[in-house]
Every structure is written in structure tokens, then in C-alpha cells.
Design a protein around this nucleic acid. Structure first.
Lengths: 116, 116
DNA sequence: CCCATATTCAACCATCCGGTTGACGATCAG
DNA sequence: CTGATCGTCAACCGGATGGTTGAATATGGG
């Protein structure tokens, strides 16, 4: 069920979608709640979620009226392995990551992101 | 000079461009030589190299008539850090990487790739 | 049953993307 | 100088992408 690198990288190439992934890192969310912090229409967010789902990065499960979105980090593994082959980057530094998230989210370029 | 994650991920989302990066992992190459294994026109490859260059993943240096293309693995670091924040993937396994390269390159979907 | 809520679908639009071809600018070889 | 080689530029094309709005499809609540 592993989506191709094409699709995974393409999914990651959009700041709105990366922001969504970062939100889902915190917790599972309903579509409406995912959409709330963005200026974009709900349908727009729904389409982004479809792209993320297509890439295997997010799964969606209907529970009653609400569809719950869940991060699927394993879908990143193939892409991660591919990238690690270049450069031999040092071991993961979670602080680096936090800093990065913060940077991207507070960046003016960024598309109305939720503050983590 | 670090290109945005948008641009880096977008650059990685194309199999031709990933194949080029894999080739440059071996050694620096002239544009014509990069283009040689592909069915695509030289101009097409030139455009791909421009995208990779824009993303900071490849640098180009003119020496005489020939422009030498060089892999710049550091440009992947930001993207790598971002990805590592999800999932906590285990330490880099170079064998995994080799296998992956081979898989992608031998995949029918792939765009006439050079065998590594 | 009826209505409100949650989400997607469908059509549409502007823009970007990957590819082509043909002309052009540089540089080396004779 | 002339000609071949290396590479990019410009214009063009079809198809994908990111967004919109408005209608349609669940589902749950009174």
C-alpha cells in the first residue's frame, strides 16, 4: 500500500498540507477542525486531505457524522530512507525539528497556519 | 541560500529528477552526459537541472564549453529534518537505500533510468 | 419526518508543470 | 574565420494542481 515516492514528495511540497500533517502530529482531528485555522474553504481542505490520503500520509475513518483524520507516519519512511542515502545526515535531533516546525509555521510565506 | 521546503520537495517529486540526483551521487557530470541515458530531449533535461539547481540540490559550474553538475546533498538536510520529526525512523541503513535505488530504477514506471 | 451538521462532489477557473521544437549564444578545433 | 559542439532560451501545448462556489449525500437530533 506504499504510495510511490512521486506522490509522497508531491504531497509534501505544499505548505498547507505540511501544516495539516503537523497538526495531526498532535492528535487525530475531524475534517472541520482541520480546516478551522485556515482561510481556505472547507472543500479546499478536503481536497488537500484527499491528496494526503492518496499519498498514504493520512487515513480517514468515518465515525458517525464525523470523519476522523489520523497521521500515518510510516508512509514517510520510504521517502526518508531515500533521502538519507544522500548526505548521511546526523542522527535525528528533535529540537531541530521543533525549531523547524516553529519556523515554518511563523513564516510570513506560510498559509495561515495554526501555531503549534 | 537554503531553498524552501516547498521547492525542495517539489523538486524531489519527479522520477527523472530523482534519477539525475542518483547519477550525480556517483560523480559530477556534464549536462549532455546527464541527458544521455534518458529518452527526453536535452532541453528537457536542462529544465530539470534548472529545477534541481533552484532547489539547491545541484550546482552548475561552467568549465570551458561544458557545464559540470554537482550534487549538493546539504540541500536535503532541512527536508530530512522535517521528515524525521514524524515517525522517528530508525538509523540510516545504507543497504536499505541501495535496495531502494535499485527498486526505483528498475521499476517499469520509471523514466528510462540509468542502472546504478 | 424535518432540519442542521459534516463532508464530499462537480464544474469551473487560473496557473503551473513537463515536455517538445527551433533559434540562439558560447566556446573550442582547425 | 568557419564550423561543430554544448547548453539555454522562447514559444507553444496538453494535462495536472490549487483554489473557488453551489449542489448533493450522509448522519444525527428533536
Amino acid at each position: 500500500m506504499t504510495a510511490s515516492l512521486d506522490i509522497v514528495f508531491a504531497a509534501l511540497a505544499d505548505p498547507t498540507r505540511r501544516a495539516i500533517l503537523a497538526m495531526l502530529l498532535e492528535d487525530d482531528m475531524a475534517v472541520t477542525d482541520v480546516a478551522e485555522p485556515f482561510k481556505m474553504s472547507l472543500a479546499g481542505i478536503s481536497k488537500h486531505l484527499a491528496v494526503l490520503s492518496e499519498a498514504g500520509l493520512v487515513s480517514r475513518e468515518r465515525r458517525g457524522r464525523v470523519i476522523w483524520c489520523k497521521l500515518e507516519p510510516d508512509a514517510l519512511k520510504a521517502a526518508s530512507v531515500w533521502m538519507q542515502g544522500f548526505g548521511q545526515f546526523e542522527a535525528i535531533d528533535l529540537d531541530d525539528f521543533e525549531r523547524f516546525l516553529a519556523t515554518e509555521l511563523s513564516d510570513p510565506e506560510t498559509v495561515e497556519p495554526p501555531q503549534v
